[in-house]
Write a protein that binds this DNA or RNA. Sequence first.
RNA 1: GGAAGAAUGGCCGAGCGGUUUAAGGCACUGGACUUGAAAUCCAGCGCAAGGGUAACUUUGCCGUGAGUUCGAAUCUCACUUCUUCCGCCA
Length: 425
Amino acid sequence: MIELRVLRKNFEKLKKGLIERGEKLENFFKILKIIENRKKITNSLQKLQQKLNEESKALSNSSIEEIDQRRSFLRNIRTNIQSLETDFQHLENTLTNLILKIPNLPQDDVPLGESEKNNLEIKQIGIPNKFNFKILDHVELGDKLGILDLERSSKISGSRFAFLKGSGSLLNRALMQYLCNFHAGHGDIELTVPYLVKYSSMQATGQFPKFFEDAFQISIPNSESYYLIPTSEVPVTNFHSNEILPEKELPLRYFSHSHCFRAEAGSAGRDTRGLIRQHQFEKVEMVRFCTEQQSEFEFAEMVSRASKILTELNLPHRIVSLCTGDLGFSSQKTYDLEVWLPSQGIYREISSCSIFGTFQSLRAKIKYRDAKGYLKPAFTLNGSGLPLGRTLVAILENNQQINGTVKIPKVLWKYMNGLKVLTRP
RNA sequence: GGAAGAAUGGCCGAGCGGUUUAAGGCACUGGACUUGAAAUCCAGCGCAAGGGUAACUUUGCCGUGAGUUCGAAUCUCACUUCUUCCGCCA
């Protein structure tokens, strides 16, 4: 969230950022107007409050008669105050709702552009395999190997769900073990998280109010709704909400394996085939809290961490800097890692590493106390490391062989009970 | 599910209708003393929103939201969370 104080002094900067992102300025102008109104009301409200305080205080040693005399006059002031307070509250709510819909501003080093076409490739790692036979996509492979069942899942839950089976389940589990151990091996703290969260938690990380339609809502009679987490970023970032972190403990590095749930409201008809875009998937997520000075280093470390995993898994990939128009709502800079998918002949997003600045921590009230004793909002970052489904897809497609079998990357062997190749049953 | 209690600044903790302008302590910051440190002493020290170039100043904030009152941290009601006890169930 943009701080009101900062916003008021940087209208031009905000406007520039919004234009770069391709946002409409409608809300921006509404905000300007409300701030002016709010100023007027605040002034008259404060004057009345001051008067009432002074008059009341003057009465503290008065006789009953004196109090009786002044009563109706003071009561009148109070009524006026209450009516102004109602107006103020209304304006304040409108203002807050508008500000919550303002996205984060891009950092200066984010490439300008309108859409993903303008994203900037930073580097390529690994060389895509050249296959001298007709390759299969992961759905065909999964079907032939008997490890993926999409027909039965649609019978039970509809589209965008899947069953893994046999050594497919084992591979999924092995991948999770490998990823978690990889991050734990770097000293990150593991969290196992709640999958249902409150509205306020979704608001704190930036999913709500703007992307309410993308979340699964769990309603219970006579009670506040829960929401299924779209990523463990939500519970892990909120792990420290309303907290003050000791500066000497920063940076704090967490990782968490969780299931993720997304309604995919805006993507009907897109990626309907296979495991690429599911309502439910598993992901290992990195989440970090740090100071502004530490943030660029943490960001770079996170990107290289994800890249290292892909390299260990022997998956060709590239790193791309998202342009201003393609940046996520809460992010001020994002590097996507894209893995090579032979069946589609393109690089597909497999990890997204973002630096949020103070955008989330101002919403979630995550602070730290600096050396001078001042409270400052912490910087938050997160990145996928990695999603299980898409990684599975990449492993199957990149490691397929002419006889229809799939080689399992060496780093997973020890989690596969000795299995090194997936073969047809 | 039932009963009782609690929630105050970064932390501990007093206050339970009007000198609260939230005591006192710890922590922190600046200074004095010291070769340096510790200890001691002096001073400062919350968040947010208005006004002012600034010094400064006004308002709001004692879990959240309503209410009573000229006046609420203090009284009333509802809610949330936590603690203890009882019951029930994995």
